[in-house]
Simulated assay, not measured.
Amino acid sequence: MSNLKFTSEHEWLRLEDNNVVTVGITDYAQGHLGDLVYIQLPDVGADYAAGEEVAVIESVKTAGGIAMPFGGTVVEVNSALNDEPGVVNEDPLGAGWFFKMTTSDVAQMSTLMDEAAYDAYIAKLG
Rank of each mutant, 00 (worst) to 15 (best):
M1G: 14
N3Q: 12
L4K: 04
K5Q: 06
F6A: 02
T7V: 02
H10G: 06
L13Y: 04
L13N: 04
L15C: 10
D17K: 15
N18P: 10
N18D: 15
N18W: 11
N19W: 06
N19D: 13
N19L: 14
V20F: 08
V20L: 08
V23L: 02
G24Q: 02
G24L: 00
T26F: 01
D27R: 14
Y28C: 01
Q30S: 07
Q30L: 02
G31S: 14
L33F: 05
G34L: 07
L36M: 08
Y38L: 10
I39W: 01
Q40M: 08
Q40R: 10
Q40H: 08
L41E: 03
V44D: 15
A46I: 09
D47Q: 15
V54Y: 10
A55I: 05
I57Y: 07
I57C: 07
S59R: 01
T62A: 13
G64E: 00
G64H: 00
G64C: 05
I66Q: 05
A67D: 11
A67R: 12
P69N: 07
P69Y: 02
F70H: 03
T73S: 07
T73L: 09
E76F: 04
V77D: 01
N78K: 02
N78F: 01
N78Q: 05
A80L: 06
A80K: 15
N82L: 14
E84M: 15
G86E: 10
V88G: 00
D91W: 04
P92W: 00
P92F: 07
L93T: 11
A95D: 07
G96L: 01
W97T: 00
W97Q: 03
W97R: 00
F98Y: 09
K100V: 02
K100I: 06
T102I: 11
A107K: 11
A107E: 13
M109Y: 10
M109G: 09
S110R: 14
D114A: 11
A116V: 12
A117K: 04
Y118G: 06
D119T: 15
Y121F: 11
Y121Q: 10
A123H: 03
K124D: 09
G126L: 03
G126M: 11
G126P: 03
